[in-house]
Write a protein that binds this DNA or RNA. Structure first.
Length: 760
DNA sequence: AAGTCGGGCATTTTT
DNA sequence: TGCCCGACTT
């Protein structure tokens, strides 16, 4: 391992940093993962550090997995017994090990946002508060903000005084009680309780041994609680290496505090501060343009990215007539590059905004995949089965209990359920305790019978759970509860759900195998602390923390996603759509300058995803919430110096790929927008002639567009359903579904691949 | 328990 | 404008 050769001088310096805190300001594409992995390798190999005393923390499982893999590669050692994982995984290890010290039962469950909302609703009801004056999301938001700052319910109650927040304080307190009664811990609690645990002498000693060399990635995304966690873990003068980029902080709305980077010295005195400014991803034009945007922000330390790869092509900016026209241009643009479609991405501000692009791609039969959106473990059928597993482990988990109580339907209706739950509430127990006691007076005979049958069903399954391995247990649940029957029909919906269930079985199978082969936690590793757990607990932890069946592989298809989802990724060609005032910056962000700055960073993140080609686009008008709205270009566009841009306009959109297009003089005259005060560029606009407004156009017909396209509004014929019309399209590729209305038969959902539709 | 209707709503989402 | 959730219906 030749560090000096593998790293540039700045990277090298950061990697071989000695003791004490270090802040590495790593610009986009500057090789931060490289620094972290090489630092770990250097510590182990050159400094003879015991890997068990190294802890590396990330935000995502993906980042952690990648990091671990690369370190193990570097050191040729697998598994390496250092901790590499997410904040929450680290917290979980501690809580499974020492949970009782903070009054947690050993089998606590991690509750997700949906569960949180259910608990808030219950808490609201118990407090006699109305959901219309206390919307669940607002209440949850307020509680979340408190938790991010490590403010418990008691402290919260003391510091609020207005009407709304004093009620929220009550709900907060009750929420915590319900959460604990159900045996649950939410994501924020995990961090909170870990910080608390670290106040314990013994825990602190043990953990600091493990985190003697601490590395934290994406430091700009840490919230206050996580900062305190890191501080407690590192201890005074700890050997912390924090890596981050204030320009890529896009999670303020989730509690992330940029000040953790900006005021790093306050939390970790006398740090070494290093910048990584050489970029290995993008062309200089892209870097300069993106840099110019974010240079308008005040809350930053500032850095200037450079590359030795040359200026590259100009960024192409297009303003379309409407979102359909914009999408058409963007797809043309992406097709016109020599970058493969599988290495291209279209980025947008909101999930809903992918629609116009999807339709365009669909119409041209271009493969695409939408990244993000509905996640695997959030699908109803998966949540149901997970809920069964949770109930089997802890039948007092009333959230999961009520989820499966009548799923599949077994004659326990609303009235019965409400009586049961009210009784549990009144006696401060759980529905399960009521069932065990058999105290069912006042419940209808039919309901009571169904409840007792359910009790016996659960009892039987709990016994089975003792000795059945995980995949078999899941199959057992599917059979004995009759859940499998729920989706044994032949319609596309059932098919999808069956596929998902199969995927869960696969996940369980491979999870069990991996654990069986012991390739999970390395001997002596921090993770091994929690290893005493049964495999059911481990699996449930796994699904709670993973949230998705990981890694997306674009294959040959264009990736479509939000700017947020794009963070951390890179593509040969990138197009960012909908760059309009009110979309980016989003109109909800316009109240506070701090929010505006975050929107700017969002654009920065998007732009710096591109390696060689970058396209920016907006539309003159678009449908917003159903109404046509005239749109102005994003003010951020005028922050990009014109020399980096090549501007196109609606009249010339039909230019075939590769043919150079007419250029307007500069971005300001193009948009008839005065140069914003403080903009560093020299351009001056406002009075230049407006661009030609010709709407004449020749539609550029791609070879495979045309009549064969499946798109909304098309009339089709189905072998048995007759003629109808496509009214909507979901998904893509093999799982693409068409929602059609058939004459006389009504609405049907068909899997495009199997439907064999004839186009009319 | 499943289907229908209508009001409210409509950023971003690593764990 | 469309979708999602909750209330209401049968």
């Amino acid at each position: 391992m030749d560090l000096a050769n593998a790293l540039n001088p700045d990277q090298h310096e950061a990697a071989v940093h000695g003791t004490g805190p270090q802040l590495v300001l790593a610009g986009a594409g500057s090789g931060k993962t490289r620094v972290i992995t090489h630092r770990i390798a250097w510590l182990v190999r050159e400094r003879g550090v015991d890997p068990r005393s190294i802890t590396a923390v990330t935000f995502t499982n993906k980042a952690a997995a990648e990091m671990r893999e690369r370190v193990e590669q570097l050191l040729q050692r697998h598994p390496l017994p250092c901790f590499v994982g997410t904040f929450h995984r680290l917290a979980l290890v501690m809580l499974r090990r020492w949970g009782p010290k903070v009054d947690l039962t050993h089998d606590f469950a991690i509750v997700d946002t949906a569960d949180q909302k259910a608990l808030i609703k219950r808490a609201l009801r118990e407090e006699g508060l109305d959901e219309s004056s206390f919307p669940v999301n607002s209440v949850l938001g307020a509680i979340g903000r408190a938790k991010h700052k490590l403010i418990g319910s008691a402290a919260y109650a003391k510091q609020v005084d207005d009407f709304f927040h004093t009620r929220v304080a009550k709900v907060y307190k009750r929420y915590q009680k319900l959460l604990r009664d159900a045996g649950g811990v939410d994501f924020d609690d995990m961090i909170h309780l870990s910080v608390k645990l670290l106040e314990d002498e013994q825990v602190r000693r043990r953990m600091r041994e493990r985190a003697e060399w601490l590395l934290v990635d994406e430091f700009q995304d840490t919230n206050h609680a996580q900062l305190r966690f890191v501080q407690a873990l590192a201890g005074p003068g700890g050997n912390l290496t924090a890596v981050g980029d204030e320009d890529q902080g896009i999670y303020r709305w989730r509690g992330a505090e940029l000040d953790n980077i900006l005021d790093f010295e306050r939390s970790f005195p006398d740090p070494a501060i290093r910048k990584l400014e050489q970029n290995y991803r993008s062309t200089q034009n892209i870097l300069d343009a993106a840099g110019a945007v974010v240079a308008h922000n005040t809350g930053r330390r500032g850095k200037t990215l450079w590359t030795d790869r040359g200026a590259g092509t100009k960024i192409v900016l297009y303003r379309g007539k409407d979102e359909v026209d914009e999408a058409r241009w963007v797809v043309n643009a992406i097709q016109s590059t020599d970058v493969p479609l599988g290495d291209s991405a279209i980025l947008v501000r909101t999930n809903a905004a992918t629609r116009a692009f999807e339709e365009e791609l669909l119409g041209r039969r271009i493969q695409y995949n939408v990244v993000g959106g509905l996640r695997f473990y959030e699908r109803a059928e998966i949540k149901d089965l997970i809920a069964y597993l949770r109930v089997l482990r802890n039948p007092r988990d009333f959230l999961s209990f009520s989820r499966v109580l009548n799923q599949p339907p077994r004659g326990i209706g609303k009235t019965t359920r409400e009586l049961l739950e009210a009784r549990a509430e009144r006696t401060s127990t759980t529905p399960w305790d009521i069932l065990l006691a058999g105290d069912l007076d006042g419940i209808s005979k039919r309901g009571a019978t169904a409840l007792l049958a359910f009790r016996d069903l659960l009892k039987g399954m709990i016994d089975e759970a003792e000795h059945l391995p995980l995949p078999a247990l899941l199959r057992h649940i599917l059979d004995t509860t009759g859940y499998a029957k729920l989706y044994d029909k032949d319609d596309p919906d059932s098919q999808t759900r069956r596929e998902n269930i199969d995927e869960l079985l696969n996940a369980a199978q491979s999870f069990a195998e991996q654990r069986g082969y012991g390739s999970g936690a390395a001997v002596g590793s921090l993770e091994a602390l929690a290893e005493g757990d049964d495999s059911l607990t481990a699996f449930l932890d796994h699904v709670s923390l993973v949230s998705d069946t990981d890694d997306f592989d674009p294959g040959g298809s264009v990736s479509l996603m939000t700017l947020h989802s794009a963070k951390g990724l890179e593509f040969g060609a990138v197009a960012i759509g909908g760059l309009e005032d009110g979309i980016l910056p989003h109109f909800n962000a316009k109240q506070h300058s701090a929010d505006i700055e975050e929107e700017r960073r969002l654009l920065y993140v998007g732009m710096t995803r591109a390696e060689t080609r970058l396209f920016l686009s907006c539309a003159r008008r678009r449908r917003v919430a159903g109404r046509w709205q005239d749109q102005l270009p994003s003010p951020f566009l005028s922050e990009i110096p014109p020399r980096f841009l090549q501007i196109e306009e609606a009249a010339s959109f039909s230019t075939p790929p590769g043919v150079p297009v007419r250029q307007a003089q500069d971005v300001y005259s193009f948009f008839k927008r005065p140069v914003p005060a403080g903009a560093s560029s020299s351009g001056r606009g406002g009075s230049s002639p407006s661009p030609p407004r010709g709407e004449r156009r020749v539609v550029y017909d791609t070879p495979n567009a045309g009549a064969g396209a499946l798109r909304k509004g098309r009339r089709v014929r189905h072998a048995s359903l007759g003629t109808g019309k496509i009214i909507d399209i979901e998904g893509s590729g093999d799982t693409m579904r068409l929602i059609c209305i058939f004459e006389g038969k009504g609405r049907r959902k068909l899997v495009a691949k199997y439907a064999n539709l004839e186009l009319l």
